[in-house]
C-alpha cells in the first residue's frame, strides 16, 4: 500500500488559555493522542459535538496550529519537523486546502474571480495559468456567470461555492471542509455537498468533511467520531451508526432513518437493521409494510 496522504501519530494539542486572546469567545478544546491515517482519494466525515476538538484537528493538519506532541505526516513528509521552513509550510498548505464555516470571512477580494485567483496568485503561478485555473474552478462550482460580480451581493451558498473555487484553484490533494455547511440554507448545503462529492469522485481529491450533520456524515465512506479530544470511533459509515446508544452518550444522534428504525425496533417491530440513508429507510419500511 502506498503512503497515506495524511497520517498522525500520538497527536496532542492543547490551547494555552493565557495565550488565547480574550476576544475569542469560542470554546476551545484541544485534542489528545490522535492516531489516524487517511488514504488518497478517501471521503471521510469527522463528527463530534461542539467543542469536541474536531476543528482543532483540522487546523493541525495544515499547520495553522502546531501540535504540542506527536507527529503528522502529509504525503509522507513529517510536518512536525522542527527544522521546517516557511517554504515547507507553504508546500503543506498547498496540498491541504481548507474551507471554513463563515463564507464572508474567507473572501478577500471585491470581485469573485479575483478572489478565486487569490490562492494561485500566492502560489506565484504565471498569469495565463491563473486565468485557466480560475475559469475551471468557477466552472466546477457552477459560478462562471458570476465571475465579475461582487461577492457581498451573493447568497451564503454562492459565497461558499466561491470559497471552494478559491481552494480548488490551488489544486490541493486534500480539501478539509470545516463545518462549511453549518451557516447555509438547505439549498446551499445541498450544493456544497454535491460539489465536495464530485471533487472526490471525479477529481480524486481526498475530502474530509467536518460536520455535525448526521445525514452528511452518512454519505461519506468513512466516519471518524471525535469525543472530548479523542478519536472515539473510526470505521465505515454503516458501522459508525449501528451503535446508537454510544452516539447518544457522545452528544450525537444517528441519521434520522437510523434513529427511526431503532425506535421501531425498540417498540417491538421487526424492521430491517442495516439502514443508513433516508432512501434505505423508506425501502425498509415499504418492505416491512408489504410483509404484513
Amino acid at each position: 500500500m502506498s503512503e497515506p496522504i495524511i497520517r498522525t501519530k500520538g497527536l496532542s494539542f492543547s490551547y494555552d488559555e493565557n495565550k488565547n486572546p480574550s476576544f475569542d469567545v469560542r470554546e476551545v478544546h484541544g485534542v489528545r493522542d490522535i492516531n489516524i491515517s487517511i488514504e488518497r482519494g478517501e471521503y471521510v466525515a469527522v463528527l463530534g459535538h461542539n467543542g469536541s476538538g474536531k476543528s482543532t484537528l483540522a487546523k493541525l493538519l495544515n499547520m495553522i496550529l502546531i501540535p504540542n506532541s506527536g507527529d503528522i505526516f502529509i504525503d509522507g513528509v513529517r510536518i512536525t519537523d522542527e527544522n521546517f521552513t516557511e517554504d515547507d509550510v507553504f508546500d503543506v498548505r498547498r496540498k491541504v486546502g481548507m474551507v471554513f464555516q463563515n463564507p464572508d470571512n474567507q473572501l478577500v477580494a471585491t470581485v469573485v474571480e479575483e478572489d478565486v485567483a487569490f490562492g494561485p496568485e500566492n502560489l506565484g503561478l504565471p498569469r495565463e495559468e491563473i486565468r485557466r485555473r480560475v475559469n475551471s474552478a468557477l466552472a466546477a462550482v457552477g459560478m462562471t456567470e458570476y465571475a465579475r460580480h461582487a461577492p457581498h451581493k451573493l447568497s451564503g451558498g454562492q459565497k461558499q461555492r466561491i470559497a471552494i473555487a478559491g481552494i480548488i484553484a490551488m489544486r490541493p490533494d486534500v480539501i478539509i471542509f470545516d463545518e462549511s455547511t453549518a451557516m447555509l440554507d438547505p439549498l446551499g448545503r445541498r450544493d456544497v455537498i454535491e460539489i465536495m462529492e464530485r471533487l472526490n469522485r471525479e477529481d480524486g481529491i481526498t475530502v474530509i468533511n467536518i460536520t455535525h450533520y448526521m445525514d452528511e456524515a452518512s454519505r461519506a465512506d468513512r466516519v471518524i467520531i471525535v469525543n472530548e479530544g479523542e478519536v472515539a470511533f473510526d470505521a465505515p459509515a454503516r458501522e459508525a451508526f449501528s451503535n446508537i446508544s454510544d452516539l447518544h452518550r457522545m452528544g450525537l444522534e444517528a441519521p434520522q432513518g437510523v434513529e427511526l428504525m431503532a425506535a421501531l425496533r425498540d417498540a417491538g417491530l421487526d424492521v430491517a437493521e442495516n439502514v443508513l440513508t433516508s432512501e434505505e429507510c423508506i425501502e425498509a419500511l415499504n418492505s416491512f409494510l408489504q410483509d404484513k
Binding site: 475569542d24 478577500v108 487569490f118 502560489l123 481552494i167 490551488m170
Partner: peptide
C-alpha cells in the same frame, strides 16, 4: 482572525 487564518490557508 478568521480571515487571517483563511488567508494563511490559501498560502
Amino acid at each position: 482572525e478568521e480571515l487571517a487564518t483563511a488567508m494563511e490557508c490559501r498560502c
